[in-house]
């Protein structure tokens, strides 16, 4: 009996050695936003999928660090060099926060694991507003006094940048009103306190389906690929803004990073894990529900994307005057 147990243990340890690295304790997923937000939902969806399909021997644990629009979470990852039991969910904030504040972090000190999707941005208006296209909206903005109010989540962030860029392209003055979150902006739009917002689909879809708000166009090069349900209009029927003569486009990455200094095997484990997650029906449902653009990138592909996307942001933010001085 004892011998049997011993040999079993040997076999086990042998296979353990033969196969690659695996986490030996619960893995912390650091979310740079509060509970309930889009990043948090992604982290908790992955957590749920990993648990349900038994994709890892160790559980994932979600930890929210929302302070300083994600700056705190990035500082935490920066400090956790060589810790393979930590992940960070990211959005464009990974370069926007360091660029717009003086917080001393840089994603180059982290290990990029992979990009899971890109988020779309749309121009939303109140359902009973008269605007049919984004041009109608901008035409009214030209004559509005005080300037037309457009809501969004956070200051010097994605929404702020989009509103500035649209205003710059159309040559109109728009007032950007920063709210704590995109959800709040959506509510304020439904109440008619702003004329439009530039939310992600996930942030406005509830009010859309409830007949409170509706999208004018997608700030993307292509229409949304999903064609299922969502009230009378299907997401795929929303025109892209280019069709309405607004050329500015913007997408936001949704990805996962690890702290710097981890080994290749450790990184490979998470790349594999994410690939497995992205093949589950739950993940596909998640993508569709939030109308995310399925765009997976790993390894060098991801790093190239980060470099060019960062350069793009630096340029846009420079024009908008969002870069931190001194």
């Amino acid at each position: 009996m004892k011998a049997l147990a011993l040999s079993a243990a040997l076999v086990l340890s042998a296979t353990a050695h033969a196969s690659a690295w695996e986490p030996t304790k619960p893995v912390e997923v650091v979310v740079p936003f509060g509970p309930g937000g889009a990043s948090d939902q992604m982290a908790r969806t992955i957590q749920g999928i990993v648990q349900k399909h038994n994709l890892s021997s160790q559980q994932l644990v979600v930890v929210n660090k929302p302070a300083a629009t994600g700056g705190e979470a990035m500082m935490d990852i920066q400090k956790s060099m060589r810790d393979p039991h930590k992940l960070l969910t990211t959005s464009s904030g990974i370069y926007m926060t360091p660029l717009s504040t003086k917080i001393p972090v840089n994603w180059r000190n982290f290990t990029p694991v992979g990009m899971l999707a890109q988020d779309e941005f749309l121009v939303w208006v109140k359902n009973d507003a008269s605007y049919k296209t984004v041009q109608d909206l901008l035409a009214e903005a030209k004559t509005a006094s005080p300037a037309m109010k457009i809501g969004g989540g956070g200051s010097k962030r994605e929404d702020d940048l989009i509103v500035f860029s649209i205003g710059a392209e159309a040559g109109v003055k728009l007032t950007y009103i920063p709210y704590k979150s995109g959800g709040e902006a959506s509510t304020q739009l439904a109440g008619g306190h702003v004329s439009a917002d530039t939310n992600n689909p996930s942030e406005d879809v509830a009010n859309w389906r409830g007949g409170q708000t509706r999208p004018l166009c997608v700030l993307s090069k292509k229409r949304i690929a999903y064609t299922a349900r969502s009230r009378a209009t299907r997401p795929g029927d929303i025109p892209d803004c280019g069709e309405q003569g607004l050329n500015f486009t913007y997408n936001m990455l949704r990805g996962i990073f690890m702290p710097g200094g981890v080994t290749e095997e450790q990184k490979a484990f998470y790349v594999n894990l994410l690939k497995k997650v992205s093949e589950t029906p739950e993940w596909k449902e998640y993508l569709e529900r939030n109308a995310l653009l399925p765009d997976q990138r790993f390894g060098e592909d991801f790093e190239d994307f980060l470099l060019s996307d960062e350069a793009l942001h630096k340029d846009l933010m420079g024009k908008a005057g969002f870069l931190a001085t001194n």
Binding site: G34, Q41, R44
Partner: peptide, 27 residues
């Protein structure tokens, strides 16, 4: 009724609703 979380806890519940495949809101 509107899909607006009135509190932080409600926001988490809201996230839960969506994970279970329910869309909060008037519908």
């Amino acid at each position: 009724a509107l899909g607006i979380p009135g509190s932080a806890t409600a926001a988490v519940l809201l996230g839960g609703l969506m994970i279970w495949g329910l869309q909060p809101g008037p519908m």
